[in-house]
Design a protein around this nucleic acid. Sequence first.
DNA 1: TTCCTGACTCCAG
DNA 2: CCTGGAGCCAGGA
Length: 114
Amino acid sequence: MKHSPETHSFFEDVFEVVRLIPKGRVTSYGAIAKYLGSKGSSRMVGWAMNAAHSQMPPVPAQRVVNRNGLLTGKHHFESPTAMQELLEAEGVKVVKEQVQDFKKVFWDPSEELL
DNA sequence: TTCCTGACTCCAG
DNA sequence: CCTGGAGCCAGGA
């Protein structure tokens, strides 16, 4: 980032929204991107998650999955099972990288966060 | 500087 | 049902 001060805000906003996800709930990259006004930038949300691990306070990146409730980002955690274990510890059931009852635990910032 | 990649999603065929 | 292409944009080579 050479001349984009707004980029910093985008990443910061992503972290902030992710930290607002209630325990036991999950959301999607696209939902966050949409809430932040960059509808087509769902990939950037995932990109931001790459830096999430070093953020303070910690960012619960395990609560962000893709639009199908699939744990596509699990390989970016310390271990391949870390993401699933973290979610299950919060009450979210996961079977084979797929969040169960995804529709019920889904948390949309555009609707819930006003 | 250009080119390529990626924790995504939508739409067409 | 499955596959491919386009849009998106920050960073590294």
